[in-house]
Structures are given as C-alpha cells and as structure tokens.
Simulated assay, not measured.
Amino acid sequence: MDASEDNQPKEYTMSGGGGGGMTSIHVTALDGLVNVNSLFTIAVFVGVSIAAPGQRSLEGRSTCDAGPDVARNLLVFEVVSFSFFLFSSLVAQGLKLAINLLNSNDVDEAFRAHINARVLRLGMLASAVGSVMGCLFLLLSMVDVIQIRLGLLSCGSQSTVRAVATLVTLVCTALAVYIATIFYAFTH
C-alpha cells in the first residue's frame, strides 16, 4: 500500500448488494433524529403533568392566574407537538428499516427494500420538518406552562417575561441553526 492510497476518502456504504450510496451516515442521522424526538416527547408529557387547570400562579395575584383557555391551549399544543414528533420518528424509523433491508446480505431478494435516493431525501426532509414543527408547538406549550406557573404575560411579571424571552430566544436560535444545517445538507 503506497502513501497515495492512504489519503483516499473512505467509503462508508453499508455492506450488502445494491446499496447505491445508502450509507451508515444516513442511518446514524436518522437515529439521532429519533433520539431527539424521544427526548422532546418526554418533555411533552412533563409539561402536561406539571400544569393543571385552576392552578394558582406563583405571582400571588388572582388576576394573574391563567384561566381555562390557557390550560386548553396547553393541552392542544402538547397533543399537536406529540403528533409531529411521532410522525417524524415513524418516518425516520421507516427509512432506517428500508436502508437496512436494502443493504443487508441476509435478506432474500423478495424482501429487499428498493429505496430511491429522491425518496430517501424527501423522507429525511419530511422527518426534519416534523421535528421542527413539533419543536414550535412544544415552545408554544411551554409558554403556556410558564403562564400557568408564573402568571400571565399580560400581568407584566418580570419572572414570566424573562422566562418566556429566554425560552423563545434560545429555542428560535437553535431552530434557526438546525434549519440552516438541514438546508445546507440538502443543497450540497
């Protein structure tokens, strides 16, 4: 082996016939997406369990207590968020299954998956969009949790405003980075 061979890029295609560029990198990316969705799904259920309707806020003024409309919105946002995370995870799991079947030597030809690169890209994009939408609805639900626990935003409580501002700033920044990364990955 000479020195020029050592500098060649390594192929990460999974073993098996007919892989056509379906790599372990795709499976790793999909695994990461499913793991993150699982963590966010836990956050959905924690948000529902922490905030109950009729709960008094820590603000101390009854006019700052959240009403049933905030609790209703919380529940709706949590359910929609969970739905997007579940959609994203199921799409990602389906793609992983297809990639693994496509690249497996142990599967009969009749059961081998035939996944098109365009379908893989669209599926990964759909899964990423599902995660982003789930995060947005989780953000809205967390704002409602904050209002139930710390008092309504309309009361102008410093703790409520700071908590919501921090949450919205950090989550929106992280989502912007995530979306930019996805855009870059799909255009290069």
Rank of each mutant, 00 (worst) to 15 (best):
Met14Leu: 15
Ala165His: 03
Ile115Gln: 06
Ser127Cys: 03
Cys172Met: 09
Phe87Gln: 13
Gly32Glu: 08
Val164Glu: 08
Leu86Asn: 03
Ala165Thr: 04
Ile179His: 02
Leu153His: 03
Ile182Arg: 06
Thr166Trp: 12
Leu150Gln: 09
Thr181Tyr: 12
Asn37Met: 02
Val76Leu: 14
Ala52Pro: 00
Leu153Glu: 07
Val143Ser: 02
Leu30Lys: 05
Gly130Asn: 09
Leu86Cys: 06
Gln147Trp: 11
Ala128Trp: 14
Ala117Gly: 02
Arg61Cys: 10
Ser89Phe: 07
Gln55Trp: 15
Ala117Phe: 10
Glu78Trp: 01
Ala185Gln: 12
Glu109Gln: 14
Leu39Pro: 00
Ser104Gln: 00
Ser89Asp: 07
Gly130Leu: 10
Phe111Gly: 09
Val80Pro: 02
Leu101Phe: 09
Asn7Ala: 10
Ala163Phe: 04
Phe186Ile: 04
Gly18Ile: 01
Leu101Cys: 08
Cys172Ile: 00
Leu125Asp: 11
Ser4His: 04
Pro53Met: 14
Leu167His: 01
Met14Tyr: 11
Ala29Val: 09
Asn7Thr: 06
Val119Glu: 14
Lys96Leu: 05
Ile115Asp: 06
Val129Cys: 13
Val27Gly: 07
Ala110Arg: 10
Ser157Lys: 13
Asp65Lys: 11
Gly67Arg: 12
Tyr184Leu: 12
Gly156Ile: 08
Gln93Gly: 06
Val164Ala: 04
Asn7Leu: 08
Ala176Asp: 01
Ser89Tyr: 12
Gly21Cys: 06
Gln147Glu: 15
His114Asn: 12
His114Asp: 13
Tyr178Ala: 10
Val161Cys: 08
Leu33Pro: 05
Leu167Ser: 02
His26Met: 14
Gly19His: 03
Ile25Lys: 10
Thr160Phe: 09
Leu150Asn: 11
Gly19Cys: 06
Val48Leu: 15
Gly32Pro: 05
Gln93Thr: 10
Gly16Phe: 01
Val91Arg: 02
Val161Tyr: 07
Met142Lys: 06
Leu122Cys: 12
Ile148Trp: 14
Val46His: 06
Met142Trp: 10
Thr173Gly: 03
Val161Arg: 10
Ile146His: 04
Asn7Met: 08
Val132Glu: 07
Thr173His: 01
Ser127Asn: 04
Leu150Phe: 13
Gly123Cys: 12
Leu170His: 00
Ala180Glu: 08
Leu136Gly: 00
Met1Tyr: 06
Leu75His: 12
Phe186Thr: 04
Val36Pro: 01
Ala126Glu: 13
Met133Gln: 07
Ala174Thr: 06
Pro9Gly: 01
Val168Cys: 01
Met124Pro: 02
Ser88Trp: 04
Asn35Arg: 01
Leu97Thr: 13
Ser141Thr: 00
Gly17Pro: 04
Cys64Val: 13
Asn73Gln: 13
His114Lys: 14
Arg121Cys: 08
Met22Lys: 11
Ser49Glu: 15
Gln158Val: 12
Tyr12Lys: 09
Gln8Trp: 02
Leu122Thr: 11
Glu78Phe: 01
Met142Thr: 10
Tyr178Asp: 02
Ser154Phe: 10
Arg149Leu: 15
Leu138Thr: 00
Ser24Thr: 15
Met142Arg: 02
Ala128Thr: 14
Ser15Cys: 02
Glu109Phe: 07
Phe45Asn: 05
His114Ser: 09
Val119Tyr: 11
Cys155Glu: 06
Thr169Trp: 00
Leu150Val: 05
Ser157Asp: 14
Val27Ala: 07
Asn116Met: 08
Ile148Pro: 06
Val44Ser: 04
Asp6Leu: 14
